[in-house]
Design a protein around this nucleic acid. Structure first.
Lengths: 340, 340
DNA sequence: TTGTACGCGTTATCAA
DNA sequence: TTGATAACGCGTACAA
């Protein structure tokens, strides 16, 4: 790794001149010198030391992508298709703009904050933060923040959100089930409580029930545990309670697929005995047979929008609204049939 | 972001002392001072500037994870389940050891090299490099390198490989088909040529044919184009040629699933008309019905082993062998039946 | 036990 | 048109 200093010394000139040529500040350098330097640079294959540059410039050309996720999930954070597609799109956009992506995963906000500060990243993309988490981060981190899947509440912090029309999506999916004659409709999600995105979707689900004059019952709320050792077990328990409902609306394609497998393996037919709707419409939903009826969202685009929004804020052009909302769409395939 | 200098000044002592306390070099500091400094550190929430530290220490505590992948694949690099599970496991292991992961994706080795040099990473994990690529990287990058899916050839470069028993895996999968009465067996992979991993698997496939006294025919080699606009089309073409074979061995679960969908949608039944075997046994293979017969590999473990190997080399304990081989295993499910 | 001073590689300011 | 020189923040010989 040759340094500017070394180059300057070998060429018998000052580091300033070399640096100027490297950065194209050529209006103050003689053509002959430019020529000489550029030739030499090619020759020795000069590459700048990013750490030194970051130190000098007080910025990093790095964007931190932070996933708040527990360690022991059945499907680890990065392996989740929603996350991986999003990440892929973020990385692509970032790279196209000359930025680097630093991924950090933790369940501990304090630890996350420490790392962010350490690396001096220029901006942050946050996944899966609850409102409170995002606020805590934004209180400590004064640079631009964009959240995926968080609900911005007035005065709660300085960050932007690129979200989905979750409430509406759930409303329409549920209504579709109701239109097909279902009256006892399950809602399946993970965790112990209904937060953030789930809250919105759950709300949409309940609104649809209410609008149709149906009563919500706790017996229709299916909570699965996402942990490695628990997920399958808790899905099994849900299968035992499948008689409570004729249809289930799941918060992800993965859970929908897993539920279908669990039901099928127990001799409960989908959709004949139980109808199922998923969420996301990822590649594997598209490849499953019978085709999964699900809510489609364009994750790739959402990643691009989120990243572009962040880059814009960094560049000093924040969007007008705190929250940007992408549209989803119900995709009707073969896992919902008329209730008997 | 408070600095050591600032702390020292506020405490009326030197930076050395503060630094020493931070790094636990306390045998040369008086207990009273330690106490004072530590209390103050807590108070102001000191976080070191990593760029400055890296610059001073000439290392980065960063490991570069490089994917050589074209931009326009149907499934982008990070979204591939094999990659995302591997990445997840790499990240976890790295983080546990106090290292950071920097992901870089490109199809251009020169560009990759530039970035590696810039960031001054302590080590490299390479995905999808052909032998020649890995050699080129190792020629320029003098620090430890571990490859996933590359075949080490004597004297070709200074890197380690954490691979799979690909030849054997393909041999056994193919033999399983032969035992089920299949004689015309297709081999499906992507690209224009058979390289690296594919070469090994292809070799195993042909060896199995040969051992059974079957002749290999080019008409059984199904090459799909991985590009976004091409993949579906080329799968369609393969379906047209499905009559050539009674079984197909696919290089990934994804291709197997896509092939099955394409066949099914054309009224060709799996496995009744055509048997299919996949490779990897990822989550989605496990969740597909009929269950996909496939070659299982423990991707998570492989990621851990690769990362641990790299960390060991960095720590000065390289493994005895250049190549570490993980074991795979044929998982028999429902997409293979006896040939008529 | 503590402090001074320098190097790491780059950029920026200002003087020559 | 070019060159010294000082920052950026940290770690560490070496001196006190």
């Amino acid at each position: 790794m040759i340094t500017i200093k070394e180059i300057a010394s070998q060429l018998g000139m000052s580091t300033t001149t070399v640096s100027n040529v490297i950065h194209g500040k050529t209006r103050e350098v003689s053509p002959a010198t430019i020529e000489r330097v550029q030739k030499f640079l090619k020759e020795v294959d000069y590459v700048p030391n990013i750490n030194a540059r970051n130190l000098a410039l007080q910025r990093s050309k790095m964007v931190g992508v932070v996933l708040k996720a527990p360690e022991d999930k059945y499907v680890s954070a990065l392996a989740d298709p929603f996350v991986s597609v999003m990440l892929s799109s973020i990385e692509k956009t970032l790279r196209g703009a000359g930025y680097y992506m630093m991924v950090y995963i933790s369940d501990d906000i304090a630890e996350i904050l420490k790392n962010i500060a350490s690396w001096n990243v220029d901006g942050l993309i946050l996944f899966y933060m609850l409102d409170d988490d995002a606020s805590r981060v934004s209180a400590k981190f004064s640079k631009p923040i964009v959240c995926i899947d968080a609900y911005y509440q007035e005065d709660i912090g300085d960050f932007y959100v690129v979200g989905l029309d979750d409430e509406n999506a759930a409303y329409h999916a549920t209504r579709y089930l109701i239109e097909n004659g279902h009256t006892r409709i399950g809602y399946l999600c993970d965790g112990n409580e209904i937060t953030s995105v789930n809250y919105q979707r759950f709300h949409g689900y309940r609104r649809a029930l209410k609008d149709a004059g149906l009563e919500y019952s706790d017996r229709c709320l299916f909570l699965v545990r996402p942990e490695k050792e628990e997920l399958l077990k808790s899905l099994g328990k849900i299968c035992d309670k499948a008689g409570n409902v004729t249809a289930v609306f799941c918060m992800s394609d993965l859970y929908a697929k897993m539920l279908i497998c669990a039901l099928t393996d127990r001799g409960i037919r989908v959709p004949d005995d139980v109808s199922v709707i998923g969420f996301d419409d990822n590649l594997y939903a598209q490849l499953s047979r019978p085709g999964l009826t699900t809510v489609h969202q364009d994750v790739e685009k959402r990643g691009t929008v989120a990243t572009q929004t962040l880059l814009n804020i960094i560049a000093g052009n924040p969007p007008a609204e705190r929250r940007i909302e992408m549209k989803s769409e119900l995709v009707i395939r073969d896992t919902v049939c008329r209730a008997n």
